[in-house]
Design a binder for these strands. Structure first.
Lengths: 217, 217
DNA sequence: ACAGTATTGTTATTAATTTAACAATAATGA
DNA sequence: TCATTATTGTTAAATTAATAACAATACTGT
């Protein structure tokens, strides 16, 4: 899926990602008391080009004024209208190791409409405990809890050899979005959103560039 | 930077990333005793298309045989020739919170040529201690240690308001690759590799898709 | 009043990436 | 022997994304 329809207009998924970034920049500016902002200012904060900002905002039909630029609070509202989903989306973390806990903390309270409402781990010492007030369940209860708590997004930080199995299980239970942080690529049906971020690949790319850098100079 | 020269051929950076993925798939197959593999098999493991695999391998000049496909160990060797950098690249983690430690563990021992040789944290309780045998230094010693230990890649997991400052500092000290896991976008000179992964944006994208999914059905 | 300036909104162009198409090839088996 | 099959390697087309170009506009200062 590369494009999405909003107000009967096709919008690239990449634009959606940038809108989220723009909003973050806008929220910070808003907190500082700023009321208006120019495309090149947004661009500078999120290191994209000003043209791209204008293009993205054009796509969602948001207009700025020539002398003041864009009205920050209105733009936040419009972006939120697009991105947010009242009354929010419930999220669960699968695998409560270092990574899982780190993501939990990284996230905790940052977005009121995205709530981590459950965690799962196969370690019997963790099952039944609470981490930051969120209960840790046994893997046996995946289906039951996903349905009962209406969980729609799964964050996968399980060991690589468990990734596929867990992915299958959560999709069957009704999960509609997976963030896969294991090193195992997984397959999901077309109607499930999948993001896979693989740090090892990223590191290898970085190392490759270091090599290029040194060999070509 | 979108393309790279290898053997006087232009190779897209995206291909570099996929080569890293292919190698991982190949290593697993190799361990299972498999000696040859078809493009569609690699494709299935890493969920890309077979055409793309063949195209990527064409770009690096690797040939398979018509009936057996690609020789796994030779392909691993060729990819390693491209990606790896003897005698390895030294890496440091900046910010030894949950996230930093998680990345450390995730990584530890996975790639012998990519070594985490130092960590930095401003917490005085952590400074001077060792985490998994790797020393934690004070931020004051960034420049000194980067140079002394020949560190080339920085993983940033510091608080968002410190990201830019730390980035500037490490670039000045000679870092050539940054993996930025803070929520603050940073700017680096053209010759420094930068990867920014922002989990909040990703989550918001996932939530957006959940919303689309439910509204359109 | 009017030239100069800075910015938006939009179209056009270029670049990058992916997907499709297909000839070439080698093995298989009737 | 010769059609069938499965696969590679490569070129061509299509798609997607980013960049550039520029008219339109509204404000500023002279």
């Amino acid at each position: 899926m590369t494009k999405v329809k909003i107000h009967s207009k096709e919008i690239p998924v990449k634009t959606i990602g940038r809108l989220s970034q723009y909003r973050r920049a806008l929220l910070i500016c808003s907190q500082k008391g700023k009321t208006h902002i120019f495309s090149h200012e947004i661009a500078a904060i999120q290191h994209v080009t000003a043209v791209q900002v204008r293009r993205d905002l054009m796509l969602i039909g948001f207009n700025g004024s020539l002398k003041q630029g864009y009205d920050i609070s209105k733009l936040i509202a419009v972006i939120s209208e697009i991105l947010d989903y009242e009354p929010g989306v419930n999220v669960a973390i699968f695998g409560l190791g270092n990574f899982g806990r780190a993501l939990f903390n990284y996230f905790h309270g940052k977005r009121s409409l995205l709530r981590i409402v459950a965690t799962f781990d196969s370690n019997t010492e963790k099952i039944g405990t609470e981490y930051n007030k969120v209960y840790c369940y046994s893997p046996y209860r995946v289906e039951e809890i996903i349905k009962k708590k209406d969980i729609k997004i799964a964050i996968l930080t399980v060991p690589p050899d468990k990734a596929e199995e867990v992915a299958k299980k959560v999709v069957d239970a009704g999960i509609k979005g997976i963030l896969n942080y294991t090193s195992t690529p997984i397959d999901v049906p077309d109607d499930v959103f999948l993001d896979e971020y693989d740090m090892i690949t990223t590191m290898e790319k970085a190392a490759f560039f270091v090599k290029m850098n040194e060999l070509n100079l």
